[in-house]
Simulated scan of single mutants.
Amino acid sequence: MNAVYLCLTLLLTFEGVAFGTTFTFINRCDFPVWPGILSGAGSPALETTGFELSVSGSRTVSAPSGWSGRFWGRSGCSFDGTGRGSCSTGDCGSGEVECNGGGAAPPATLVEFTLGKGSSKDFYDVSLVDGYNLPMIVEGTGGSGACESTGCVTDLNRKCPEELRAGGGVACKSACEAFGSPEYCCSGEYNSPSSCKPSLYSQIFKAACPRSYSYAYDDATSTFTCTGADYTITFCPNSPSIKSARGTASTPATPTNNNPGSLLSGTNPPIPVQQTSYAANWLADLAFSGSRRNQPLTSVLLAFGFVATSSILLSFRQHL
């Protein structure tokens, strides 16, 4: 009996070790980034909940099998010698380098993980549902299954619609955060996939970052799986195009269509034409610049499709 008990104990111990996962964080921004970590309900806290990554710095953090939680990057941070301070974007409200159970203040780009146990799959995604502050990419190594990379490598801060800009251009809000309406937040009577549809704003995010969550029910193209992998999370993977959060953000183009009125899009609330035309011009610019960077053709076609749709609807309303 003692031998059986010992074998079971060793098996359980081995399972916990063998199926643990390591997350390696790499900073390729031209400024420091402070990753934040929040464990999900029922998951243990990891060895750290926040730390500094200097330029070109890296750090590895281990998580047990079955762990769930989220990661994000904080920028524009200032901490004193005791570790007290705050950040311009992604601040977790703890007033310290360690987040200590505090989540990211939106807008912030989030990486979400649910690790499998044993031979079960890991599920992971990059979400812009709470807005965007830093580009990042997630890559799995050593696993089995699809194990596709995902993320948002576009610097959305440089092209963020004026009405979504935050902190003078250091972050880009989601439409939910900016306007607070149930239609954009997928709340209340819109709390289901059938009633909450993509908005023009979420489509801007989707066109720029096709593999990221753009709104709450964007599951089909945004959730990825892998089994038994370790993961690398890289901030600013295209570092030459990323400017410091303390620097001056570029000013978005001026809207070219200022006709009065509003645009109704499905179940979404009316969007003033000035906002709509701005978003349409943003999409057109994204499509043009994206084609030069050889972004996926589907993103470019999607962008032009929404521009054409917006123009047709506006023309139709003007003749009513």
Rank of each mutant, 00 (worst) to 15 (best):
72 W>C: 11
72 W>P: 12
73 G>Y: 05
73 G>V: 06
74 R>L: 11
76 G>P: 13
79 F>Y: 12
79 F>E: 05
79 F>W: 03
79 F>C: 04
79 F>K: 07
80 D>A: 11
81 G>M: 07
82 T>M: 08
82 T>I: 02
82 T>K: 10
82 T>C: 00
84 R>Y: 03
86 S>F: 07
89 T>S: 12
89 T>G: 04
89 T>P: 01
90 G>M: 03
90 G>C: 04
92 C>N: 05
93 G>L: 07
93 G>S: 06
94 S>E: 02
96 E>M: 14
97 V>T: 08
97 V>W: 01
98 E>K: 10
98 E>Q: 15
99 C>Q: 09
99 C>I: 09
100 N>C: 06
100 N>V: 10
101 G>F: 08
102 G>P: 05
102 G>R: 06
102 G>H: 05
103 G>P: 10
103 G>D: 15
104 A>V: 00
104 A>C: 08
105 A>R: 14
106 P>L: 08
107 P>W: 11
107 P>E: 06
109 T>H: 11
109 T>C: 13
110 L>N: 02
110 L>T: 06
111 V>F: 11
112 E>I: 14
113 F>N: 07
114 T>R: 15
114 T>S: 15
115 L>Y: 05
115 L>W: 04
115 L>T: 10
115 L>M: 10
116 G>M: 13
118 G>S: 08
118 G>R: 07
119 S>P: 14
120 S>I: 00
121 K>V: 13
122 D>F: 09
122 D>H: 11
123 F>H: 14
124 Y>F: 09
124 Y>E: 03
124 Y>S: 05
125 D>W: 01
125 D>K: 07
125 D>G: 02
127 S>D: 03
129 V>G: 03
129 V>T: 15
129 V>N: 14
129 V>Y: 14
130 D>T: 09
130 D>C: 02
132 Y>T: 02
132 Y>M: 00
134 L>T: 13
134 L>S: 09
136 M>T: 03
137 I>F: 01
138 V>Y: 02
139 E>A: 11
139 E>S: 14
139 E>T: 14
139 E>F: 00
140 G>R: 01
141 T>R: 15
142 G>I: 10
142 G>L: 10
143 G>K: 02
146 A>H: 00
147 C>Y: 11
148 E>G: 08
152 C>I: 07
152 C>H: 04
153 V>S: 15
154 T>M: 00
155 D>S: 10
156 L>I: 13
156 L>P: 07
156 L>Q: 12
157 N>I: 01
157 N>F: 05
158 R>C: 12
158 R>D: 15
159 K>A: 12
160 C>K: 12
160 C>S: 13
163 E>G: 08
166 A>Y: 15
168 G>S: 03
169 G>I: 02
169 G>T: 06
169 G>H: 02
169 G>F: 01
169 G>A: 06
170 V>P: 01
170 V>E: 11
170 V>F: 06
171 A>L: 03
171 A>G: 13
174 S>T: 06
174 S>E: 06
175 A>M: 09
175 A>E: 15
176 C>S: 07
176 C>G: 10
176 C>M: 09
177 E>C: 00
178 A>P: 08
178 A>Q: 10
180 G>N: 14
181 S>V: 09
181 S>E: 13
182 P>I: 04
182 P>A: 04
182 P>E: 11
183 E>N: 02
183 E>A: 14
184 Y>K: 04
185 C>Y: 11
